[in-house]
């Protein structure tokens, strides 16, 4: 029973991490560069939800569309500031510019909201449900549901729509896509918007259950990075599986050992994968590693 309880908590946490990792992979594939500001965008999404809740005291579900729209706008701004001027430079330039932008976002949040932890409103309502001795927070169920819907939606968008095909064409080979008439610049900007929107949703979900501070973004990006390396650099499915694995280490493995040992084991697993299967558990999307 205890294992089940921990596993459910781990899956809920992993679902939120998966949204962060998904946004990370989308930008990685579209630009070939690592967006190190993705974690800070999660923090920005969390604080945006906190700020909106101050004006509109409604459940988080009603704030969600606003967060998505505003964060998509922020994603476009990130693309214009950190990617567009450097698009013809080596990927490491974007890597550095997103680190810088992340610091700007972090300090901006600190200046605007202060350093104290904040809590966003729950998606539906707070409280817990009990099933056969298991205590499950309503917010955990909401996180799992929303994450599943969004991840499914992104997959549908990418695989079954003309826009998705253009996004994938841009991700696979920008030069060929441009030669075929795909507006590559717009597709990259759209990818940043989509990734930021996903980060915003993750921020709203995490900021209720686990609170949010301006410096939390660093934790999220490290976890997303590990998830992507474990799952396979550039693999969407791999990133989701990697995110789940990271969360299960934090809950289930930590229960068998302790948090310090669980963290050590996670990094040991990461190193083992890098040594024996550097392409990650699900294989690496070809030519993606920056």
């Amino acid at each position: 029973m205890e294992f089940l309880q921990l596993a459910i908590n781990g899956i809920a946490l992993g679902a939120a991490y998966a949204l962060v990792a998904l946004g990370f992979v989308l930008i990685l594939n579209a630009t070939g560069a690592v967006n190190f500001a993705q974690g800070d965008l999660v923090a920005a999404g969390g604080f945006l939800a906190v700020a909106l809740a101050g004006f509109l005291p409604v459940p988080g579900l009603l704030l969600l569309p606003l967060v998505v729209i505003l964060m998509a706008g922020l994603g476009l701004a990130v693309s214009a500031a950190a990617y567009w001027p450097l698009r013809d430079r080596p990927p490491v330039a974007v890597f550095i510019s997103t680190i810088a932008l992340g610091i700007v976002i972090q300090n901006g949040l600190n200046g605007l909201f202060g350093a104290e932890p904040r809590a966003a409103p729950p998606l539906f309502s707070g409280g817990h449900l009990e099933f056969f001795g298991l205590v499950i927070a309503r917010q955990s169920l909401a996180i799992m549901g929303v994450a599943a819907l969004l991840i499914g939606g992104v997959q549908l968008l990418l695989k079954h729509t003309q826009l998705g095909r253009r996004l994938r064409a841009t991700a696979q080979d920008r030069e060929v896509a441009a030669a075929l008439g795909v507006p590559v610049g717009a597709m990259v900007a759209l990818t940043f918007a989509l990734a930021a929107a996903l980060a915003g949703v993750a921020g709203l979900l995490l900021a209720n259950q686990f609170f949010i501070t301006p410096t939390h973004g660093t934790d999220f990006i490290v976890k997303a990075y590990i998830a992507v390396v474990i799952g396979g650099w550039g693999r969407v499915g791999g990133a989701l599986a990697g995110a789940m694995l990271v969360a299960l280490f934090e809950t289930v493995v930590a229960a068998w050992t302790d948090y310090a040992v669980a963290t050590g084991l996670l990094y040991a697993a990461l190193l083992t994968i890098l040594v024996f299967r550097p392409q990650g558990l699900f294989g690496e999307a070809e030519g993606r590693r920056a």
Partner: peptide, 16 residues
Amino acid sequence: EGLDVSVRDVTAALAK
């Protein structure tokens, strides 16, 4: 038990 500041879910520590 020591908890890292990045730990989000502490149910494992509580259970132990």
